[in-house]
């Protein structure tokens, strides 16, 4: 049976290497690797990075990219940027939200409330596409999960703008980015040093902003990541203890048969 077990282990290794290869094989240019605080089984978000990332998102990305699935209230929930209740109310109130119809049947705008979803920059996909030269700026709510390579990929694209190599043809309104498919992207480099002024005094370098906004986008894609990690550790500890107890029980029960021999 030992032989079988060894084979099983080898086979499962093959199985997993296939699964992982599947993920890796299509990355053409090696992505930049960042030592994210949310990686690993006890990974957590860096609270201040999330708050800065939110600032980058609103001041830079939000003029084109919507975030339909996230509400202002989420900004104050545990495991996220954890703005205070008053901060969340103030953030929400900064936005004009269309509501209605009122008693007269008209739509009207009012200041946002925490329960509102993030206000989109364009009324619909067609408008967003038309305003951006035919390239729809994707909704950012689950963007990190919707791209192979996840957080590393988003960070790499933000840092991947370069002058095209000699002889590389670029059409109008298309930019060179070494991490994109075909090395072409229709979004101009969104980040430049000092484009935002961080309220906590952090130096707004390109790398810093790219890291912060990627952290923020990772949170919006997976808002319960911290709860998931915490619960996972507890579940694994529980299962290990329980399986140990069951193993001992099993040995005791089967010893009745073995002693009969």
């Amino acid at each position: 049976m030992c032989n079988l077990k060894a084979r099983f282990i080898i086979l499962s290794l093959i199985f997993f290497s296939i699964t992982f290869n599947q993920v890796k094989s299509e990355e053409k240019t090696k992505l930049l690797k960042v030592d994210w605080s949310f990686k690993g089984i006890t990974g957590k978000f860096d609270r201040s990075s999330l708050q800065r990332g939110y600032q980058v998102y609103t001041e830079v990305c939000a003029s084109c990219h919507s975030m339909n699935l996230v509400s202002y209230r989420n900004l104050g929930e545990p495991g996220g940027p954890e703005f205070s209740v008053d901060q969340v109310k103030a953030i929400a109130a900064n936005f004009e939200v269309e509501d209605g119809p009122n008693a007269d049947g008209d739509m009207f705008t009012r200041p946002g409330r925490p329960s509102d979803k993030f206000v989109s920059p364009y009324p619909n996909v067609q408008a967003a596409t038309a305003a951006n030269g035919g390239a729809y700026p994707p909704d950012m709510s689950v963007l990190v999960k919707a791209r192979k390579g996840g957080s590393d990929y988003i960070y790499s694209v933000l840092m991947g703008y370069e002058d095209p190599p000699a002889g590389f043809e670029l059409e109008d309104g298309v930019y060179y980015n070494k991490y994109m498919d075909g090395k072409k992207i229709k979004m101009s480099n969104p980040l430049s040093e000092g484009i935002v002024t961080y309220s906590d005094g952090t130096d707004a370098t390109e790398a810093q902003m790219a890291k912060d906004v990627t952290t923020f986008l990772t949170w919006t894609a997976e808002p319960h990541l911290e709860t998931r990690h915490k619960m996972g550790v507890k579940v694994l500890i529980f299962l290990t203890i329980f399986s140990l107890l069951v193993y001992l029980s099993m040995k005791r029960i089967w010893s009745r048969i073995d002693s009969e021999k």
Binding site: I41, H229, G232, V235, L236
Partner: peptide, 9 residues
């Protein structure tokens, strides 16, 4: 245990 590894991590 393997299942939980996938679910949580």
């Amino acid at each position: 245990i393997i299942f939980s590894g996938f679910i949580f991590f």
